[in-house]
Design a protein around this nucleic acid. Sequence first.
RNA 1: GAGGCUGUAGCUCAGUCGGUAGAGCAACGGACUUUUAAUCCGUAGGUCUCGGGUUCGAGCCCCGACAGCCUCACCA
Length: 507
Amino acid sequence: MNDPTTQNHAGGSEMLEAARREKLRKIQAMGIDPWGGRFDGHAAIAEIRAREKEIVVEPTGDCATGHPPEQHGPKVRAAGRIVLQRKAGKLIFIDVRDWTGQIQLFIGRNQVGERNWELAGLLDLGDLIGVDGELRHTKTGELTIFVEQLHFLAKAIDTPPAKHKGLQDPELRQRRRYLDLIHTEGSLERALHRTAIVRSVRDTLASERFVEVEGPTLHAIAGGAAARPFTTHHNALDIDLHLRIALELHLKRLLVGGIERVFELGRVYRNEGIDARHNPEFTMLEVYQAYGDYRTMMDLTEKIIIEAINATGQQYQLDWGGKTIDFTPPFARMTYAELFAEHTGVEADDETAIREAAARDGIEHRGKHIDVVKNLLFEQRVEGALCGPIFVYDYPASICPLTKRKADDPTVAERFELFVQGMELANAYTELNDPDLQEELFSRQLEGLPEEESMARMDRDFLRALRQGMPPAGGLGVGIDRLVMLLTGATTIREVILFPLLRPEVE
RNA sequence: GAGGCUGUAGCUCAGUCGGUAGAGCAACGGACUUUUAAUCCGUAGGUCUCGGGUUCGAGCCCCGACAGCCUCACCA
């Protein structure tokens, strides 16, 4: 049976699988279900490790004869995945891991009895097991569960990756995220950190009396942002629909409807390119507060981020891509015009100088509105240089059609963006609530931009809602994936999205 | 969409000048009752991503396709 010549045409993976299936068969032959079942009463491995101090050492040990002192520890029950196995004759050491930690098991032939020993011999890396045993130290001082009873919970038919190097291929890490979570250092922790951050954002908003709502994701008109939408079709109504590109226009309708502090934390979809900072579906937070303005939102943004950092148990100085980002509040605040002048050497109201500077940077500026040119220059020269966190506020009005202008300077919009490491993390406005001005701005396409990039698609019902009277309000958008990136040290968005979009695997 | 890099055993990676495909881990057989990436002896495992081409001969050179990564463009 084990004669290699009888298996000479089997491939490597087939041999590996055959060996595991043979063990599975033997487990079944022992009358044990290799797919396990309910396993009650086990403690998290981290909790078990915390019981180390309950181990008592009897003073009967005899150092002269080399016999270890007698130990008594608590009886514990654990469950987890086998990540390492060392066989030494009639002993097996196993390292088992759950989502809280890892611990060593000791299985001795004379200690567990023949049936457990037989089962132990059928264990493979990757199998899921449960154990009952006593928590003690080995000779070398390693905290260990000395197994008394072994429970088989599930078989791994496929071989896990190299036990120490784990998965290195970024493609495999994304396509088989389950393996990545098991075997890549920090992968599971990052996923759990993400949920802690999202929960913290919700808690912070709830503590400020904001209420969470769920708007539609299927839109007849995909508005609220400048992005190309995905298109789909509803059969019964026979209409084309778009997946939402923003949450904004429905939340504002709710503001009109009297939900004075409202937010939605949800997925939006943009049919754009994919890179380290962009995934076609991503998670957005949008918040609206009646009777507030963009400064209200600035304070709220800072609070949301600070609380999220606290929720992950980290300090305010965070490592990110080899650099340190200092989130110690208060964050820096500078106007668009100040930063523009500082980084370009050109005053923000000097049109001739701006066009000259744009030409020097190779930016095509002819026929474009001066604010568009200014913003191209800003994006090229300023944004990438902002380490942050820094609130950039008071933007040129013409590039912000949904924003209220300053009362004393209609060329300036009450808007801020929060930049960290050159990334736009948050974007907020004092919302425009004048329906006539809104309609005019919607209608008048932004000069120099093609139609599909502008917000020319008119949402008539949204304008009708504004005519009912929308309270003056502050509005905020936060890119949750980017926030998680910054707070978990991830330098690509694919690290914080469990299942990023990939081309389908070809067989 | 453009350019660059990468693709070899289940996993991680070597592969020189174009001359019969290599290692570690994992697996299989054996030894071992305190190991820590256990160790030791032995065995097996390959459509070199796919398809063409050049050549006496291609993992290696050329062309094309597919996938991933990076940079750029769009975008947040």
